[in-house]
């Protein structure tokens, strides 16, 4: 079976659309957010954070199991997926992935739970479980990420309350951006050449024609027109819409309502500047540490 591809990034870094695009390649299978590396076993990952119970963490796995076990995501199939999770809570997470892989077949699993990059423990577990996994380090300008993060929280009150209650330690988007990327860079720095690749989301999404074949070449999968065309339709994924009662999300809520590529909008994607005050901390600027890392990653 092929090694999986994990997309690592902070939240609000285009990971849903990017994972959706790559996951639609005929040789790949795009998954919603599974959050499995939060624990050694399925049960441990399942119970990890109150935040996940409330809102985000479980829907992706429930939808995946419902879809793969029964070919449909309904309230009933999700309920049975929940039962399956309960019955297999002692399974190591590798065994859960292997189970999903068996159901998917000989395709690259593509997954992108942003939570993986929030704690060194999670990334290290991921690399321990899949030491040869391909990793795509997805980056977005810290200003763009921060603005998107603040906007999402304001639009989704339940998410805002969940974050406030989750005691995750970092509610400032700049701190999240910095801590996440620092961690990813540090953990992936010594991996063999080509195991971890880095890409700016803005560059990728504004020039899919140039970058999608490169990603395919890297993953050693088809680069023909038909394959690339499939990637241009993330909306065709069974997970690219709101899920059934019991598992409505499992992905970025904006992606679930607008999963198709808006080529005209993406072509206009541009990178903001590191200079100037922050929307979410009026009168303040990015810290020197953030500026240094952002420049290292190619932002100005």
């Amino acid at each position: 079976m092929p090694e999986p591809l994990f997309v690592l990034c902070p939240p609000r870094s285009y990971s849903s659309i990017v994972c959706g695009i790559i996951g639609q390649h005929p040789d790949c299978y795009g998954l919603p957010e599974l959050n499995l590396f939060l624990g050694d076993t399925l049960g441990e990952a399942w119970q990890k954070y109150p935040l996940f119970k409330l809102f985000l963490g479980r829907d992706g796995l429930l939808r995946t199991l419902a879809q793969l076990h029964e070919g449909a995501q309904t309230a009933d199939t999700v309920a049975r997926a929940q039962e399956w999770v309960t019955q297999h809570s002692d399974w190591p997470v590798r065994k859960v992935f292997d189970h999903i892989q068996d159901l998917v077949g000989d395709r690259i699993l593509v997954e992108k739970s942003p939570m993986y990059a929030r704690e060194q423990e999670y990334i290290e577990r991921m690399l321990h479980v899949f030491p040869k996994a391909s990793i795509l380090h997805l980056i977005r300008h810290p200003r763009g990420m921060g603005q998107s993060y603040v906007k999402l929280r304001s639009e989704y009150g339940v998410l805002n309350r969940a974050v406030e209650n989750a005691n995750t330690g970092a509610r400032d988007p700049e701190k999240i951006w910095m801590a996440t990327h620092e961690l990813i860079v540090a953990v992936t720095d010594d991996l063999p050449i080509g195991q971890c690749m880095r890409i700016k989301g803005e560059a990728l999404l504004s020039d899919l024609e140039s970058y999608l074949p490169q990603i395919c070449e890297w993953l050693e999968i088809r680069t023909d027109k038909e394959a690339i065309n499939s990637m241009m339709h993330p909306e065709d994924s069974p997970y690219a819409s709101e899920g059934p009662p019991g598992a409505p999300r499992g992905n970025d809520p904006n992606f679930l309502t607008h999963p198709a590529i808006d080529s005209a909008r993406l072509a206009k994607l541009s990178e903001p500047t590191l200079d100037g005050e922050l929307d979410w901390r009026p009168g303040e600027l990015f810290t020197p540490e953030t500026r240094k890392l952002a420049k290292q990653l190619g932002y100005q």
Binding site: I193, R198, A203, S210, Y211, Q214, E217, W218
Partner: peptide, 18 residues
């Protein structure tokens, strides 16, 4: 050097040295 995506295509270090 570091294998990477670029506007000029995928760049793989031909020497296999990072």
């Amino acid at each position: 050097g570091q294998m990477r995506f670029t506007p000029d295509g995928l760049k793989v270090p031909l020497s296999l040295l990072g």
